[in-house]
Amino acid sequence: MGEQMARSGGPVPNRSDQRRRRNKVDIDKVPVVLADGVVRGPDCPDGVRGLARDWYESLRTSGQSVFYADSDWTSAFIIARAIEKFEERPTAHMLSAILSGFGSLAATEGDRRRLKIELERAPEIDADEEAAVAEIDEWRARLSR
């Protein structure tokens, strides 16, 4: 993710499991396990406030952040500063630059789909189900003695 990613135009493609046509399309599926409160990357620099801070912090808990290099986090900081300036004095040109920055970090699902990258959340393990399986395994071990 450290290099500039090319964005293709047009509508955002559907997720691979929502496509009607089943033609072979190479999709990089990345299972990502995110626990509540897990953050990655450097802390948001002091002085970054409002929507800019919220965006930066949300990026730190997003699935694609596991792939970010130092240069990506520096880009994220620059984009956060641009968001601050946009909040002070919004212009269409600034919004376009910010959205382009989002694309370079694959920060939105639409950007990731255009790049043929899908993040999948690993299924959560039910503690009750896990305990029941352990109990069954214990009974099997007792019966086989």
Score class of each variant (00 low, 15 high):
89 R>D: 08
68 Y>M: 03
67 F>E: 14
105 L>P: 01
9 G>V: 09
80 A>M: 08
52 A>R: 02
10 G>N: 06
74 T>C: 03
88 E>M: 10
65 S>R: 05
39 V>I: 07
103 G>P: 02
12 V>Q: 14
66 V>N: 02
83 I>C: 01
23 N>K: 06
11 P>E: 14
13 P>M: 09
9 G>I: 08
62 S>I: 05
117 I>G: 02
103 G>N: 05
55 W>G: 03
56 Y>M: 14
49 R>A: 09
100 S>T: 05
99 L>Y: 10
4 Q>D: 13
48 V>R: 09
100 S>E: 11
104 S>Y: 05
107 A>V: 03
55 W>H: 10
83 I>M: 06
75 S>G: 07
16 S>P: 10
110 G>S: 09
84 E>L: 10
54 D>G: 02
55 W>Q: 07
79 I>L: 14
33 V>P: 02
75 S>M: 11
9 G>C: 10
28 D>Y: 04
114 R>G: 02
124 E>V: 11
115 L>H: 01
59 L>T: 09
54 D>L: 10
95 L>W: 04
7 R>E: 15
74 T>H: 08
38 V>D: 10
99 L>Q: 13
120 E>W: 12
96 S>D: 07
68 Y>H: 01
103 G>D: 12
7 R>T: 15
123 P>E: 15
94 M>G: 03
107 A>C: 08
93 H>G: 03
112 R>Y: 07
45 P>T: 01
100 S>M: 08
77 F>I: 10
16 S>M: 11
16 S>V: 11
103 G>T: 04
80 A>S: 15
33 V>K: 08
109 E>M: 00
31 P>Q: 09
92 A>C: 05
74 T>N: 06
25 V>S: 06
33 V>H: 07
106 A>K: 05
68 Y>E: 03
46 D>I: 04
25 V>E: 11
103 G>W: 03
10 G>K: 03
70 D>Y: 10
75 S>T: 09
23 N>Q: 06
117 I>V: 14
98 I>L: 03
87 E>L: 07
44 C>P: 01
114 R>L: 12
16 S>Y: 06
28 D>M: 15
127 A>W: 00
35 A>R: 08
122 A>S: 11
91 T>K: 03
66 V>Y: 00
59 L>H: 01
118 E>R: 02
24 K>T: 13
115 L>G: 00
110 G>P: 04
39 V>H: 04
33 V>C: 12
102 F>I: 00
67 F>H: 12
108 T>I: 06
11 P>H: 12
101 G>R: 04
56 Y>L: 15
87 E>N: 06
103 G>I: 06
62 S>G: 09
74 T>V: 14
67 F>T: 13
13 P>Q: 09
75 S>W: 07
97 A>Y: 00
37 G>K: 12
61 T>E: 14
109 E>Q: 04
98 I>E: 01
116 K>C: 06
82 A>P: 00
65 S>M: 07
15 R>Y: 14
124 E>Y: 04
78 I>N: 14
67 F>L: 14
59 L>D: 01
